[in-house]
Nucleic acid binder design. Sequence first.
DNA 1: TAACACTTGTTTTTT
DNA 2: ACAAGTGTTA
Length: 772
Amino acid sequence: MDYLDSLNKPQREAVTAPDGPMLVIAGAGSGKTRVLTMRIAYLLSNGVMPYNILALTFTNKAAREMKERIAGIVGQQLASQLWMGTFHSLFARILRYESQYIGFTQDFTIYDTQDSKSLIKSIIKNMQLDDKIYKPSTVAGLISSAKNSLITPSMYAQNADFTVRDRASRRQAMPQVYLQYVNECRRCNAMDFDDLLLYTNVLLRDNPEVLARYQDKFKYVLVDEYQDTNLSQYVIIKRLVEKSRNICVVGDDAQSIYSFRGARIENILSFQKDYPDMRLYKLEQNYRSTQNIVNAANSIIKHNSGQIHKTVFSDNDEGDKVRIISSHSDFEEAHKVVNDIMYRMLHEHLQPSDFAILYRTNAQWRAFEEELNTLGLRYKVFGGLAFYQRKDVKDLLAYFRLAVNHNDNESLRRIINYPARKIGATTVSKIEQYAQATNRTLWNSLSPQALAEAGVSNAAIQNISKFVDMINTFGIQAENLDSYKFATEVYRQSGMRDLLESEKNDSEGKEHYDNISELIGGIYEFNISHLETGEPNNIRAYLEYAPLITDLDSDKSDERNYITLMTIHSSKGLEFNNVYIVGVEEDIFPGSMSIMNPQSIEEERRLFYVAVTRARNSVTISYALNRFRFDSMTSVPSIPSRFLNDVDNVFTERPKSMNVATQMSRFKFDGTSSQPRNSYSFSRTSAGASARPSASRFKPASAALNRTSASSAGDSQPTLYNIGDRVVHDSFGRGTVIDIEGAGQSTKLRIEFDNVGIKHLLLKFARLKPIK
DNA sequence: TAACACTTGTTTTTT
DNA sequence: ACAAGTGTTA
């Protein structure tokens, strides 16, 4: 077993551990994936059958890579029989197989977040609730977290905490909304992401013989990134390993960053309570990063409480210090970062693939993209709108979905009049009402008789009948054609092809056309590869796989010499030579949602830790002092992130021009200011503030500001503000001036808004009006 | 019904 | 800035 020679002692012990529960605490960069890979290879070489191993990963990409590495050790034949993948994809597979136990058919549709929200929206409308209070995204979040905690609608209704919370936020009808949502999904033969886990729990809970079957099947269960599992996943695992007790979980409590989707760090913290006879293995040597990076990361995470004790260290070179750079604006930040990358590519002979730019929120990539384009550097943006969420892709997929599952209301709504076939909003709304009143799906309300009862006009009935015939034809073709042939046929017969071809000459239409080309190209590849492996290659198989794919998963490793741009969340588990962490400012990182709550701050700090530990050779942290949001009009001056103070100075190189600590103290969180106060300052007036200024008037001025930050704002006429003055702001509403700092160009106002609390506004950007 | 102008909210992170 | 939603007109 020579492959074991490459491992260090704790790694080898974990790989060759005897049966029974085991916990591997793996510090960042400590070879966690290697251990998991080799553990599986070890089991296989000791006679364990591959189909008796269940290995759960966090992303499909991680699963695919691990499978390839295992194939390299034990051969393709064995590796391909492993049950390895994400919770969602593997349990979706099991649920299709066992669908009769839970009252779905094998062809159930998976609703993505968009579908869920759109369904919730229609429920809220039907129940005549105020969609300002019942915001679909908020409601979706509440339902999702209930499901992830295994709370059913009836449990929800009886739970005092929820009742109190919902009453406080005037959402008393939440239990009914939740119930309706569940019923409606069921009627449509559809499951959302959370359902894939929830119904797995239901399946295993209510069917002892099924549970026993899977307990016998999965003799070994391995879970990666255990710190990010939620209750639903936790209970599934617990049930599955009850008999064999062969559970191996791997994770790092310091990298738990998904509590917003129900992840419970306590799962890993209390593993020992669940399995008192567990064996603990700690991987503490970091092979990835320089000493400076590891030490800097340690100095950050030290500020959190309640961790599993471990000492991560590195024997690599000491390396460069962590650089911290400061910019005046987000545009300057992008400029500096991209130029720095260019410079290092030239002087250190580095490749684009040696670099990654990581940020807290998806919206932050834009500025960098512009700079990268200017210098002509290769880059790739991950995340944001996933490919499968784009409108055109969803449209064509809706045809596929409806062909396979006629009861998929969301898909039917999308395409019943797209491309336009004279079935208008009035008609659709009549059908909706009829379906609602008679407890049918939309599809089951499309018979001529039903339509007549619904009061649909004769002309519309004709049109709908053609549509129904078409979908029925697609349903038959779905059975008989391979996925590629089917996709091209549907694209043509649905009329989408004619529509998109006719528009592909303008730049917008071109994009739509390209999206579809990419989708069909993807289906072509799916078709070929499944044909080769002998797996099903019809559209049904494609639809089982497609909704769970993210653009990270579909990244092809052949041509990947580009600079990577992604959120820190998506970067988990990846590594890069040189990492730039950008936008490290209060309200962004930590995000504004988390600053009230110490627990969230700790999670944000772990996220920061994850970001730093992605790097092998160098880390550069960047922040900007002004950031333009919601177009260039409004700017709230940024404060460098508190996390910058967490990094021990010994390991950093701070900007010469400004000392972060000094800047921080100028913006004390308690509201005191070390700056002398002025009793008045200057502001844009009448032309700028009272009449709604057109964007074109303002843009040149702010564009100039973006580049040089402190250049003149030009032609403003002075307005006097005093502490205590009442003002009104375009987006924040009414408020009172409670403090004024600086003068002239750099005047900053502290304003306590009636509805949104205290904000710092840079006077030259804020559109304020005095109230008499 | 379709084309259009106008209003509104949006920025947390993802399977 | 931008997309999505709403209302107005032909």
